[in-house]
Amino acid sequence: MVEEEGFRRYVAHIILWIGIAIVAFPVYIAIIASTQENALIANGQMSLLPGGHFFEVYYQTIFVGTTGSTREPVGTMMLNSLVMALMIAVGKIAISIISAYAIVYFRFPFRMPIFWLIFITLMLPVEVRIYPTYKIVADLHMLDSYAGLALPLIASATATLLFRQFFMTVPDELLEASRIDGAGPFRFFWDTLLPLSRTNMAALFVILFILGWNQYLWPLLITTRDDMQTIQIGIRKMITTSDALTEWPLVMATAVLAMLPPVFVVVVMQKLFVRGLVETEK
């Protein structure tokens, strides 16, 4: 590395802190707003320092909900989001790892066509098939259900590719040693392949959990009942009515609550997160 003199280093520190300020400012405002009185905010008189209504606002948000637009407590929404995110993350990992296992460790007719069928779904995001997919879910009577929220999103070309790639790097001799040690397909998968995939699974889980928690378009389409809506949908409904009626402290508290789990995951499991992000983009 080429050493740099002090001046340039100060510049770098300053630029980075400006960047951090830009990145953090909107969230800071949200946190501040969630501790103040609605009347003050609605008048455009919001202070840039914390107000005194933190507990009151968060209590109402989590356990009661807004008085106008959506009366569902945000606690319920968070639970729905959590269930959906977990179903998506766990579901994707589970079905992807077993299909990758089949594709790498078995030779069977239609192996490659099946691989391509899974692979091409990369090019079919939910946005390009919105209404026909909606119709199928409706026909299967899965509207307003957890299954309807998660199942159509559970296929994953990315995860399948990732596991396939990882399995290809596992030495062949490991399977041969297992066979000599008397392990069949199930044993080998359970005793050897799965433990070896742990880090990959964890990294993938972090990414997929965030992806699942942040789903928006799909839940927007298929949930109609208030008690089934996720937090991302709830937050939009809170600001649908005219500006005067929007309870901004509650909206901002909901925004903070909606950010909390995924941001927590990114910060606490940063290593896994970075790894997952880089791996899934390969």
């Binding site: 980075l16 960047g19 951090i20 990145v23 953090a24 400012f25 909107p26 969230v27 405002i29 949200a30 707003a33 965030i210 928690w213 942040n214 928006y216 991302q232 937050i235 939009r236 600001i239 901004w248 909206v251 901002m252 925004a255 909606a258 950010m259 995924p262 941001v263 995951v265 990114v266 910060v267 940063q270 997160f273 970075v274 992000l277």
Partner: peptide
């Protein structure tokens, strides 16, 4: 760490944050 966390903020939340500001 201080620069990567906004990845985790959902698009609708981003919308709400910015329209509010």
């Amino acid at each position: 760490t201080l620069l990567i966390w906004p990845y985790a903020v959902a698009p609708p939340v981003v919308g709400v944050l910015w329209i509010f500001m």
